[in-house]
C-alpha cells in the first residue's frame, strides 16, 4: 500500500516537472515577461480600461426606446439577451441530439459495432471548437444568430454527448441486469432505466453546458455569429477598451448569476436535498451563515 502511494506521488511530481520543462521550451527559456509586465498592465488598466463606459447600460439613441426602463434598450442588455437566447436554443437542441446519440455510444448498452461509429461522429463534432463551426455555418447560412445557434448546437452534441455516455457507462450495473433479465427491450432500458438512473448527472451536465454556451456565445460574435460578441468585436476593432470593459463586466455578472442559478437547481436533485431542502439563502450566503440558517429552520 505504502509502495503504491509512493509510486503515485512520484508520478504526480514527475508530471508537474514535465509540464514545467515543456512550458520552458515553449517560451524559449525566457521567463522575464512573466515578471516584468506588471507596469504595462497597470498602465493599460488606468489609461484604457478603467472606468468602464457605463453609458452602454443606458438606452440606445436609435431606434427609439419604447421600454419604461432605459436599460432594456441598452446595447449591453440587447447583446447579452441575444447571446443567452442563442445559448438556450443551442443547449436544448444539442441536448436532444446528445441524449438520442449517447445511449448508442455507451459500451454497456450497445455492441462495439454501434458504439464505435457513434463515438467517432461525436468526436468529430467536438474536435472543432464552436468558433470554427460558427465560421463554417456563416459560410452556409450567412451572418447572424442562426449561424451561432447551429455552431453551438453541433458542439453541444459532441461535448454533452461524451459527458452523457460516460455518465451512462459509469452507472451501477444491477438495475441494467435486473431489467435485461426481465426481458425489457433496449429502448425501454435506455429511457426507463438508464436515463432515470443517470438523471442527476445528466441535469448537472445540461446546466453546465448552458453556462458554457453562454460564455462561448460571447466569443462567437467575434466572427459575426450574433450576440454580445458582435459589440465586443466592434469596440475592440476601434480600440475602445472602456466600452469593452463594460461588456466584460456584464458577461462576468451574467455568468456568475447563471452559476448560482445552476447550483440552486442542482441542489434540488442531489442527495443532500433528501435531508435538507435548499433555499436561495443557502446559495447566496457564505457557508457558515447558510448552516446557521439551516439549523434555525430545523429548530422550528
Amino acid at each position: 500500500m505504502i509502495r503504491r502511494k509512493t509510486t503515485f506521488s512520484l508520478i504526480g511530481i514527475g508530471t508537474v516537472i514535465a509540464a514545467l520543462v515543456v512550458f520552458d521550451s515553449l517560451i524559449g527559456g525566457d521567463w522575464s515577461p512573466l515578471f516584468g509586465g506588471k507596469e504595462n498592465f497597470v498602465e493599460f488598466w488606468q489609461e484604457d480600461l478603467w472606468p468602464p463606459d457605463w453609458s452602454l447600460l443606458e438606452a440606445r439613441k436609435y431606434p427609439a426606446c419604447e421600454a419604461s426602463i432605459g436599460f432594456f434598450c441598452s446595447k449591453a442588455y440587447i447583446g447579452m439577451l441575444e447571446t443567452i437566447k442563442m445559448a438556450f436554443v443551442a443547449t436544448v437542441l444539442g441536448f436532444i441530439g446528445a441524449i438520442l446519440l449517447s445511449p448508442l455510444a455507451a459500451r454497456n448498452l450497445v455492441p462495439k459495432a454501434i458504439s464505435f461509429p457513434v463515438r467517432i461522429f461525436m468526436a468529430a463534432t467536438r474536435s472543432l471548437p464552436s468558433l470554427i463551426w460558427a465560421v463554417i455555418f456563416i459560410a452556409i447560412v450567412g451572418l447572424g444568430p442562426l449561424a451561432g445557434v447551429l455552431a453551438m448546437t453541433f458542439y453541444t452534441i459532441g461535448y454533452l454527448g461524451k459527458l452523457q455516455y460516460e455518465e451512462m457507462e459509469g452507472m451501477r450495473s444491477d438495475p441494467l441486469e435486473a431489467s435485461r433479465a426481465m426481458g425489457l427491450s433496449r429502448s425501454e432500458i435506455t429511457f426507463l432505466v438508464v436515463i432515470p438512473e443517470a438523471s442527476n448527472g445528466l441535469l448537472s451536465q445540461l446546466l453546465f453546458m448552458f453556462e458554457y454556451n453562454v460564455r462561448h456565445g460571447t466569443v462567437l460574435g467575434l466572427v459575426g455569429a450574433g450576440g454580445i460578441g458582435y459589440y465586443l468585436n466592434f469596440y475592440i476593432g476601434l480600440f475602445m477598451y472602456r466600452q469593452v470593459m463594460t461588456f466584460i463586466i456584464v458577461i462576468f455578472v451574467v455568468v456568475v448569476l447563471l452559476d448560482l442559478l445552476s447550483m440552486f437547481i442542482r441542489s434540488f436533485v442531489n442527495e443532500e436535498s433528501d435531508v435538507k431542502r435548499p433555499s436561495w439563502k443557502t446559495i447566496f450566503l457564505p457557508p457558515e451563515a447558510a448552516v446557521k440558517e439551516h439549523l434555525e429552520k430545523t429548530d422550528e
Binding site: 438495475p175 441486469e177 435486473a178 426481458g183 432515470p196
Partner: peptide
C-alpha cells in the same frame, strides 16, 4: 419460459433505480 417477463431477477444489490 416466455422471453419477455417470464424471468424475474432480484440481484444482491436489488437493481433499483435510485433516483426514480
Amino acid at each position: 419460459i416466455q422471453p419477455r417477463g417470464g424471468l424475474g431477477y432480484i440481484p444482491q444489490k436489488l437493481g433499483l433505480i435510485r433516483h426514480a
